[in-house]
Design a protein around this nucleic acid. Structure first.
Lengths: 244, 244
DNA sequence: GGACTATACACGTATATACAAGTCAATATT
DNA sequence: AATATTGACTTGTATATACGTGTATAGTCC
């Protein structure tokens, strides 16, 4: 921001040099920037140092590199903020509560049309289905309605979800590479009111999530929380992807 | 997951070596790991290569380094998923809609007790306050109720928010380093019903956000969306912080 | 013309070396 | 005893050098 006059490392100076040209518009989005050896000539640093600077810009998403071709200014990021959504078990235990749950349904069933679409599978092929209620200190806090792709978690039906939540198990099992979220507000239906012990006029938060690992759809989950008892939230620290 | 048998770069092998020791529990959380020169002796790589490997693990948050002291295993990350929340202007224009807005209030006012707490300021010190309604194709979509720390954005009152949304302006102005979100579901009050043109029984999504830049609190915003017309969501790609 | 090849150039990785800078403890000095 | 110095060890940065790998193109041969 303001002048950091502290002695910057050279690789940081090089990063700033590139970022300045990008941010000022001299190097436009998608354009090629000078090669490493050209920057060596321009700035007089060694190629290793230039390489480190630009490699870091690459992992920070500011430039894209293609071996044998060159380095290009990356498209600007869409304006967005990130919200961290913790697993319900973690959240409850973090505030000192006792988590328990009631598993209402845990079975394999043929995929309905909508579930098959969500999981990118053929209709009527088997999917694992879990329907359960999470409780904090005995009070119902969340309905979890989850479908899982059997190919990625064949052991899913044998698990004891009073010991580990489905979410935690899947996060342990495989790396999540992509997530789609939808959060909406609506009124609960009769069954949900019964399970959550709330009145029919109470607004609920519904959080739907689909997640992928590589090119495989892992799971589709719908979580319903009573608005009066629960709200999703969290604090997120942006690991430094700063300019300068 | 399974062993990729493709020829790994040496620095990746070193990263895996360290990660294996961490994940297997041989090097426990908080413990010191061998120094660079020790790993040089163990693995036979050069110090520069070891340095790159461990530096990358450092930015990936797996280890913490202290110059002159050593390298330590970082605390494990809490289980969480990330939700990307786009700015409303972006979201509307992305689906082809026309964004407009009505600025109801844009002024400086003394901070109430709750606002002062939220922004970490003294009560009654001046804060900037904006209250506005965002519209998509002329239909009200969101109420934005925002307080801004005057110290970080002194020009805030002079802006024309029909041209750029407050969120976009602040994101352009300074890097956000920390964000706190809370999403809840509730019924709108009478004024909100009028502004959003909804019925009093319709559940609404309320998204509260506080954001920081460095050690300064930047803004506190409350956004109210009618549940029938709007839901927050998005797709998030996890940039590869994989093991192996 | 079309296919192949040589070549130049880009980024990717690895090493050896050097010095700077921060921390800590043992030792010397006052 | 309190303080200062020194030295060992740590990470941080910078360079010169080398070779590997991927891409594009100009030129050559058929």
């Amino acid at each position: 921001m303001l002048q950091d006059t502290w002695p910057k490392p050279l690789y940081q100076t090089i990063k700033n040099y590139v970022l300045d040209h990008i941010d000022s518009g001299k190097w436009k989005s998608g354009a090629r920037i000078p090669s490493e050896s050209e920057i060596v000539k321009i700035l007089g640093a060694s190629r290793m140092t230039v390489n480190r600077a630009i490699r870091e810009l690459s992992v920070e998403g500011r430039v894209t590199r293609i071996q044998g071709v060159g380095t290009f200014v990356a498209e600007p990021k869409p304006k967005a903020t990130l919200l961290e959504i913790r697993s319900i078990g973690e959240e409850i235990s973090q505030r000192g509560g006792i988590h328990s749950c009631r598993v209402i349904l845990q079975r394999s069933e043929p995929a309905s049309k909508s579930v098959a679409t969500a999981l990118n599978m053929a209709p009527n092929s088997p999917v694992f289905h879990v329907y359960m209620v999470h409780r904090e200190n005995g009070r119902p806090m969340q309905i979890e309605d989850r479908y899982v792709n059997p190919a990625v978690a064949p052991e899913f039906l044998d698990l004891d979800f009073t010991q580990i939540t489905p979410s935690d198990h899947l996060l342990d099992l495989l790396p999540v590479t992509e997530i789609e979220h939808k959060i909406s507000s609506r009124l609960a239906d009769k069954q949900e009111c019964d399970l959550l012990q709330i009145s029919p006029s109470e607004p609920c938060l519904e959080l739907c999530r689909r997640s992928w690992s590589g090119n495989r759809t892992v799971t589709h989950v719908r979580m319903v929380n009573p608005g009066s008892k629960y709200n999703v939230g969290g604090r997120f620290h942006v690991s430094d992807m700063t300019h300068s």
